[in-house]
Design a protein around this nucleic acid. Sequence first.
DNA 1: TCACGCGGGAGAGATA
DNA 2: ATATCTCTCCCGCGTG
Length: 191
Amino acid sequence: MNSCQEAQSDLEVILEFLEEYHRQNAENTGVQDNPTGEDDDTWEQCWEPHGEALIPCGPLAAPREASYASVTTRKLSKQQTTEAGSGRKMRLFHFLFEMLEDPGMAHCVSWVPSSSSSSGVFRFSAHNKDQLAALWGQRKGNKRPMTYQKMSRALRNYARSGEIVKVKKKLTYQFGESTLMLLHKHHRGEL
DNA sequence: TCACGCGGGAGAGATA
DNA sequence: ATATCTCTCCCGCGTG
């Protein structure tokens, strides 16, 4: 099994676990999915990478370590445990998803229509891609200006984990299936 | 030939 | 001090 396949299967396992846990949590405790509404801050605090996948760290954080360990044997890294706390930096694909969900940013980056509405394929505008990159640089608080070239390099790093893969088309990338599902769920406030 | 997007290596910065 | 993760920077290659 290569790293991408491994990551993909991990994501699937995690997703199944989250769905099951979420069902139980809703039934047993009556905890609201998203009682306060979502904003950028909660967004950052409720997700954390887990090895090659994403797992929530908000309301699910407490039982996560024990329960999740039964699902996968992959250990939590130092940074991952750190990020369960507050003040975690936003990751690039979170930012991109946010931009994709913002109609006002459609001139910079947009979903690519396809037969499957949830394909997760998106494309940068050839004219405004650097504007989006600059925004990312600002969000990160970089001293030097971010460019599309540098941002796309970071995007391609996600290919190793399967979170985002490169599509063989100019300026076009695709969210991993499970990553996209989790992002959508969170965006709808289901996690 | 040239511009542009892409891919890889190396290293910086943050954190435990 | 060390290890790990996530970018960031730079350089070279392929393509139209």
